[in-house]
Amino acid sequence: MVSQPDPLQRPPLRRVQGRSSKRRSRRPRPSPWGLVALLLAGGFLWLSRGWWWPAPPPAQMILVLGGDLAREREAAALAARRGLPVVVSGGSNPEYAHWLFEQRQGLPSHQVQLDYRARDTLSNFTSLVDDLRQARIRHALLVTSSDHMDRALLVGRIVAGSRGIHLTPVPVSCGDSCQPEGRRKVWGDGLRAALWVLSGRDLKDWAAARLPGQLGPAGGH
């Protein structure tokens, strides 16, 4: 008599190696350009509040960007006329600055602050902006050379504008030594400023690796 297989006993299942009937969908890798566009859109929405903020009070201080002694001389004369405090970012050596502001213009030492943390135009603002906000500064006169003003004002209005600080330009004539800056250099630093507002960091190295040629050479003062 032939035994019948027990219907309750199923043969062991075997795993068959092969392609699944459903292909796993691969997630597309995000494009760095899409990330940059998103950062820019959000950044400019945020930074624009410095432009539509309520009307600022009269100027409360003078911010002079180092890189040319003529800027410091103009700021010293302006401070003497207006009686405003001065912050010099990345300027001349302390000996010359003390002579110019205190001895030549007769300003008291407490009216002048020398700050040497800045390395370039962006850090002129990022190194100081939170200190200015804590001091309740809402309006500053920005002193720099006329050929540097476009880039400095763009960066400053992004960085300082993100903290609600208004900047009024005071260009200093550069005469025969003027070196007009290209649009790439101006907007390259503007992009760095927007990324700093969003991330709190200078992403120049990150951007240079992913956007070669888009950011001009790092601008000085």
Rank of each mutant, 00 (worst) to 15 (best):
V2L: 14
P5N: 13
P5S: 13
L8G: 10
L8S: 10
Q9T: 11
L13S: 11
Q17D: 15
G18Q: 08
S20M: 11
R26S: 12
G34F: 11
G34S: 15
V36E: 13
L39E: 15
L39D: 15
R49L: 02
Q60V: 08
V64E: 08
G67H: 03
D68V: 03
L69H: 05
E72H: 12
E72C: 02
E72N: 03
R81K: 07
S89N: 03
G91P: 05
S92G: 10
P94T: 06
A97E: 10
A97Q: 09
A97R: 04
W99R: 14
E102K: 07
P108N: 01
Q111T: 07
Q111K: 08
V112F: 03
V112M: 04
L114A: 00
A118H: 02
R119K: 12
D120H: 10
T121S: 13
S127P: 01
S127D: 11
S127A: 14
L128S: 03
D131F: 07
D131Y: 10
D147T: 05
M149H: 02
R151I: 11
A152W: 05
A152Q: 00
L153W: 05
L153R: 01
G156E: 02
I158Q: 05
S162W: 03
H166G: 08
H166L: 06
L167W: 07
T168S: 14
C174H: 11
D176G: 08
K185V: 15
K185I: 13
G188R: 04
D189T: 04
D189C: 09
G190K: 02
L191G: 06
G200C: 06
G200L: 03
D205G: 00
A208N: 07
A208F: 00
A208K: 04
A209V: 00
L211Q: 04
G213V: 01
Q214Y: 13
P217R: 03
G220N: 12
